[in-house]
C-alpha cells in the first residue's frame, strides 16, 4: 500500500507534500516556540535585535519564580482543574445516558429529540449569555465556581459524539447485559462507558481544552481573583505587571498551557481512535 503510493506519486510530489506540511507545522508551532523561548530569557534579551532560540543568559528560574509568586498562578491552575474537572464530570453524567437513549432505546419522538439536540449545536453560547447571566444573578450564584460550571454541564457536542459511538456497539452486547441482570443505568455505566472509552477520552480532551481556555464566560461571571481560571489569570497577570514584563508573563502562559499538552499527549492514541470511531471490537 505504502510502497505503491510512493511509486505512483513520484519523488517531486513527495517533497512538495512534506514541504507544505512542514510549513503548516512551523506556522502552528512558532508562537509556542517563541513563548517558551521568551520565558527562558532575561528582559534585556527579549527585545534584542538578534533573535536566538535559546537564551545567552539563562533566566528561566527567575521568570518562573516570578510567575508563580507575583500572582497566585498555582491557584489559577488549581481553579482550572476544579472547573474543567467538574464540568467534564457533569457532562459525562448527562451525555452518556442521553446518548444511550438516543442511540439504543426505542421510544416515540426519538428522532425529533435527536434533531433538537443537533439544533443545539448550532446555537452559539453568546446568544444565551445574557439570559444565563440574569438567571445566575437571580439564583445569587454570580462570582462562584457554580457560575462558571453550571452553564457548561450539558454538552450537546458530547451527546452527539457519544451517540455516534454508541451506534457502533452491537445490540446483542446490551441484550446480553439485560439478561445478565443489569438495569438500563447499569448498562450505561458498566457496559457502554467502558466500551466507549476511546470516545470518552477524546471527548474528555476536547472538553478539557475548551473549558480550560474558555475566557468569555468566566470573565463575565467572576470578579474575584481567587476564582479566576487560567486565561483570566494571565490577563490579571498582564494587568498587574502593566504588560511589560514579558519573561514572567510567558512563563505563566507556558505553565498554564502545559497541562493541556500533557493531557493531549497522554490521551493521544485513544483520542485518535475516539474521533475516528474505530475502536469497538
Amino acid at each position: 500500500m505504502r510502497t505503491r503510493s510512493i511509486a505512483a506519486t513520484g519523488l517531486g510530489f513527495q517533497l512538495f507534500r512534506h514541504a507544505a506540511l512542514g510549513l503548516g507545522a512551523f506556522l502552528m508551532l512558532a508562537p509556542f516556540v517563541i513563548m517558551i523561548s521568551v520565558s527562558l530569557k532575561p528582559s534585556g534579551e527579549i527585545f534584542s535585535p538578534e533573535f536566538t532560540l535559546l537564551p545567552k543568559q539563562w533566566h528561566a528560574w527567575q521568570n518562573y519564580a516570578d510567575a508563580f509568586t507575583k500572582q497566585p498562578l498555582a491557584r489559577y491552575i488549581l481553579n482550572g482543574f476544579i472547573v474543567t474537572g467538574s464540568i467534564f464530570a457533569c457532562q459525562l453524567l448527562t451525555a452518556l445516558p442521553c446518548a444511550y437513549a438516543l442511540a439504543k432505546l426505542r421510544w416515540r419522538g426519538r428522532e425529533t429529540m435527536f434533531m433538537l439536540v443537533l439544533l443545539g449545536l448550532l446555537i452559539p453560547p453568546q446568544v444565551t449569555a445574557i439570559p444565563l447571566y440574569i438567571l445566575l444573578w437571580q439564583l445569587g450564584l454570580l462570582n462562584t465556581y457554580a457560575a462558571i460550571i453550571l452553564p457548561s454541564t450539558i454538552s450537546v457536542f458530547g451527546i452527539f459524539l457519544m451517540r455516534q459511538f454508541f451506534l457502533t456497539v452491537p445490540d446483542d452486547l446490551i441484550n446480553a447485559a439485560r439478561l445478565d441482570g443489569l438495569g438500563e443505568f447499569a448498562i450505561v455505566w458498566r457496559i457502554m462507558m467502558p466500551t466507549a472509552m476511546p470516545a470518552v477520552i477524546a471527548f474528555g480532551v476536547l472538553s478539557l481544552v475548551w473549558n480550560w481556555n474558555e475566557f468569555f464566560w468566566p470573565l463575565i461571571v467572576v470578579q474575584s481573583e481567587h476564582l479566576a481560571t487560567p486565561p483570566l489569570g494571565v490577563v490579571f497577570f498582564a494587568n498587574a505587571e502593566a504588560g511589560t514584563n514579558y519573561g514572567p508573563l510567558m512563563a505563566a502562559a507556558t505553565a498554564i498551557t502545559a497541562p493541556l499538552v500533557i493531557a493531549f499527549l497522554a490521551a493521544q492514541r485513544w483520542f485518535i481512535d475516539g474521533v475516528t470511531m474505530t475502536a469497538v471490537k
Binding site: 452491537p170 446483542d172 441484550n175 446480553a176 447485559a177 457496559i191 467502558p194 466500551t195 471490537k281
Partner: peptide
Amino acid sequence: DVAMVFQSYALYPYM
C-alpha cells in the same frame, strides 16, 4: 431467569 448465548457471543470486550 433464562440465559442466552448469542450468535456474536456478545462478550464484554474490556472485561
